[in-house]
């Protein structure tokens, strides 16, 4: 019981990085970005293939981050330069990435194993702090990591470029009238978003010890679910609270799905029902305001 709680929180924190990325596109830029389903495994694939080639985990994670940014850049260019609608731009990049990810890995899945001599941040961590139980060590490390990312993102979103990103999804006319090229701002935002998503993928690969070509399926919806669960829970107005609520949303969402998996068997819930569960959760939360408004009018 306790174990599953701690593992779910760890996974939730890993997904939190992805959710922060999704928050930038969905909420700041108002750009529904489906690239995520491809850039998440891209980060994992780049990480694993570099570790296989003998690179250390830190530089491989940086490479994954950059690869994600490039994937986002492609989607951004498709949308701003070729004027392809947002959803289609993301789908196109995602589709291309499926083949690219297979190319990078050279096979549909790779395992990261100490027996094969692969090092990850988690093995490094364990070697440096041998006195602390590993599950706690991982938990503390992940909390520290996500707060570092959160603080950096908070600062970035309060810079001049950051403000422009947040204003673009809100009022593009204003952004243009204030001398900002909205296309360029979208490129920056979508790249950063997918860089975070790929980084999350690289972290996840190390955490679970393997990479699978299909590990990205449903990640957009998972990120969106985290963002809106967080919004329901905290309703933050300032950026410091909003990024916190995205992380909390990811953890709570992960706990909810883990609970569904652990105790759902009594009502016949199977692991493959998870995507349906996520989809329904998002549908319910997104529909709730409309249903509430209708209900009020009837009364």
């Amino acid at each position: 019981m306790y174990d599953y709680f701690i593992f779910s929180v760890q996974e939730g924190l890993l997904y939190g990085i992805l959710a922060l990325g999704v928050y930038i596109t969905f909420r700041c830029l108002d750009f529904p970005d489906l690239t995520v389903d491809g850039s998440f495994p891209l980060g994992a694939a780049v990480f694993a293939s570099l570790v296989y080639r003998g690179f250390g985990p830190i530089e491989s994670m940086i490479a994954a981050f950059i690869a994600g940014a490039l994937a986002g850049l492609l989607t951004g260019v498709l949308h701003t330069f070729s004027k392809i609608p947002a959803l289609l731009s993301g789908i196109l990049t995602m589709t291309c990435l499926y083949s690219i990810n297979l190319r990078i890995m050279g096979r549909p899945n790779m395992s990261l194993s100490e027996n094969l001599g692969h090092r990850t941040v988690f093995t490094m961590l364990r070697d440096s702090f041998s006195g602390i139980p590993e599950s706690y060590l991982r938990l503390f490390f992940l909390i520290g990591l996500i707060f570092l990312i959160k603080i950096l993102l908070d600062l970035f979103l309060q810079t001049e470029i950051g403000l422009a990103i947040r204003a673009t999804g809100d009022n593009e006319t204003l952004v243009e009238a204030q001398g900002i090229n909205p296309d360029r701002i979208k490129l920056v935002g979508i790249s950063l978003s997918n860089a975070l998503v790929a980084f999350s993928g690289a972290m996840f690969a190390q955490y679970q010890g393997f990479v699978d070509i299909n590990m990205g399926i449903g990640m957009v919806v998972l990120g969106l679910a985290s963002v809106i669960v967080g919004e329901v829970l905290l309703r933050g107005r300032i950026i410091l609270v909003i990024t916190l609520q995205v992380i909390i949303g990811a953890v709570v969402y992960r706990l909810a799905t883990a609970t569904a998996l652990n105790y759902g068997y009594s009502i016949g819930f199977k692991p493959y029902d998870l995507k349906l569960f996520t989809g329904l959760l998002v549908i319910i939360i997104l529909s709730f305001p409309v249903i509430k408004a209708k209900f009020r009018r009837v009364k």
């Binding site: 950051g162 947040r166 809100d170 009022n171 204003l174 204030q178 300032i238």
Partner: peptide
């Protein structure tokens, strides 16, 4: 609603206008 960004604060809106004509950088806007 067209002349301001509703989800940003008053000072953040101002900061966007204040940086007009310059290249926007990576320093805090306010």
């Amino acid at each position: 609603t067209q002349g301001t960004a509703a989800s940003l604060t008053i000072e953040e809106n101002f900061a966007i206008a204040y940086a007009k004509g310059r290249t926007r950088g990576l320093h805090l806007a306010i």
